[in-house]
């Protein structure tokens, strides 16, 4: 009996000893040899905001950090982190950086429940993507916001909410990552410069009469704004007003003259204020 016990214990002891030895050896090896690279990666990772929004074009902050560590990409791609992150990464990696431009998301649609109607009842999966696959969605306007809130679900900072049938961006919370622009099946969300003064609240590219038929607030492409604008900042392309944000001074002449009210004066909060 005792012999068997001793045999078992020896076997156990040997295996445990070898396992322990190997484990310690591995720990020592990885401590002395595996250190340097992960340190750099860790530092880079700490500079990034860590919300994994994907605006940089990588799978998340970790992926971007890995690409930065290998020097495969530029350090100014982080939109939420903006200038601070870019400069921090630049100093860390020892390269010159151009700061990313401040942008906010804007929903180019004002087809709320009172302005537009539905062409059909939709009962299916309640996402914009699914609804838009079925004859372009239940809304009368084929360009407008479907209001199922795919953008709201995708937003990493919960800056978007659906009110009165259309999505609204809370610009004080928007970090400008641009994720919502990609998920909207109607492509009505775009990133506009933070200093934008005037916006077009419509995306309808149909002729005036057709646009008017489906939505009271639609841009009818009457070109009145184009003629009114003293700075030549508005152009009607495909029956839809398009504003050149660089030329626009925010004088408000077009807003006053617009017959359907699809132009709107805005002032987005400054990024510096936002952080404060």
């Amino acid at each position: 009996m005792l012999d068997v016990m001793i045999d078992i214990l020896t076997a156990l002891g040997v295996v445990v000893a070898i396992g322990l030895f190997m484990g310690i050896l591995l720990a020592v090896v990885s401590h002395f040899f595996g250190m340097e690279e992960s340190q750099k990666l860790k530092q880079i990772r700490e500079c990034l905001p860590g919300i994994n929004c994907g605006a940089c074009g990588f799978k998340g902050c970790d992926d971007y950090a890995a690409a930065l560590a290998e020097g495969n990409t530029k350090p100014n791609l982080c939109v939420p982190g903006a200038e601070d992150t870019a400069t921090a990464l630049g100093t860390l990696l020892g390269v010159e950086v151009e700061a990313p431009k401040d942008v906010v998301a804007f929903v180019h649609c004002n087809g709320n429940c009172t302005a537009t109607s539905k062409k059909a009842e939709y009962d299916g999966i309640s996402t914009c993507r699914a609804a838009s696959m079925l004859y372009g969605g239940p809304d009368a306007c084929r360009f407008g916001c479907l209001g199922f809130g795919d953008c709201a679900a995708a937003c990493p900072t919960e800056a978007i909410c659906v009110r009165d049938g259309i999505a609204h961006v809370d610009t004080t919370r928007c970090i400008g990552c641009g994720v919502c622009t990609g998920v909207c099946p109607k492509n009505i969300i775009s990133m506009v410069p933070q200093e934008t003064k005037t916006v077009v609240m419509c995306n309808n590219k149909d002729k005036g009469a057709d646009a008017r038929k489906v939505c009271k607030n639609a841009c009818i492409g009457c070109k009145k704004c184009e003629k009114t604008c003293p700075h030549g900042a508005i152009q009607v392309i495909n029956h839809l007003a398009v504003i050149d944000y660089e030329k626009c001074t925010g004088c408000g002449a077009c807003v006053a003259g617009c017959p359907t009210g699809c132009l709107k004066s805005v002032s987005f909060p400054d990024f510096a204020e936002k952080e404060a």
Binding site: V14, I18, M22, G23, L25, L26, V29, F33, G34, E37
Partner: peptide
Amino acid sequence: TIVFILVIAALVQMLEVMLKKF
């Protein structure tokens, strides 16, 4: 069998760490 598996697994892991470094 058990001891060899243990040793080989640890060895490969070590080789990977070394390769990464050098």
